[in-house]
Amino acid sequence: MHINLPTWLTLFRVALLPVMVVVFYWQFPGHNITAAIVFVLAAITDWLDGYLARRLNLTSAFGAFLDPVADKLMVAVTLFLLVESHRGGWPGVVMAVTAAVIVGREISVSALREWMAEIGMRATVKVAFVGKLKTVMQMIALVVLIVQHERSAEALRLYHIGEALLVVAGVLTIWSGLHYLRAAWPILRGEPPRRELADEDV
């Protein structure tokens, strides 16, 4: 199997995940900044591999499978790290619930997409604005929370901003998931599809 440049970038993104975990817990000066840099680098490869695949026509079946898996892993692993470091009190509850909503939505919609593909009803894919907005909010929130996960007193305000942005991303996650479910609902009921399905985020 030939692995092209975009797929190598996707594999690199997956390889960065254990690096981020180690740096996140390794208590050296600036480890939080370093962990955030690793996360941002992974996010950049997410954009770059898709851009190169389209620009250079370097698409492949393996790359099409691996790219969304790498995206979901990146977000899920980061959320698990933040939840584990955020235990105790209502802030911990809010963080855990938000993470569960985001990860649960990704699992549910991924299962729905797989089923739609199996019955041959996923021919047209469009990107919705709500999905893009959710992704932007989510990435900014995760970067802020990684940097400030130790919640130092002088940076508490910035940490709360990250929490708020993640909650907003959670709400948008539900919204986009319901949007996708609504589009697929006629097919789930056994009716002919009334409009094209919308894939909110990649």
Rank of each mutant, 00 (worst) to 15 (best):
M116G: 11
M116I: 05
A117R: 11
E118S: 15
I119C: 05
I119P: 02
G120F: 08
M121D: 05
M121S: 11
R122A: 15
R122I: 10
T124Q: 15
K126W: 01
K126M: 13
V127Y: 13
F129Y: 09
F129I: 12
F129G: 07
F129L: 15
V130N: 12
K132I: 08
K134Y: 06
K134N: 09
T135G: 11
V136A: 14
M137C: 15
M139F: 14
I140V: 15
L142T: 02
V143S: 10
V143G: 13
V143Y: 04
V144C: 04
V144K: 02
L145A: 03
I146V: 14
I146F: 00
I146N: 07
I146D: 05
V147R: 01
Q148C: 15
Q148A: 10
H149Q: 07
E150D: 14
R151Q: 01
S152D: 13
S152F: 14
A153I: 12
E154L: 12
A155R: 13
L156V: 13
L158M: 10
L158E: 00
Y159C: 08
H160S: 02
I161E: 08
G162L: 03
L165A: 02
L165M: 11
L166C: 05
L166V: 02
L166P: 09
V167Q: 10
V167L: 12
V168F: 09
A169W: 01
T173P: 01
T173V: 04
W175E: 01
S176D: 06
G177I: 00
L178Q: 04
L178P: 05
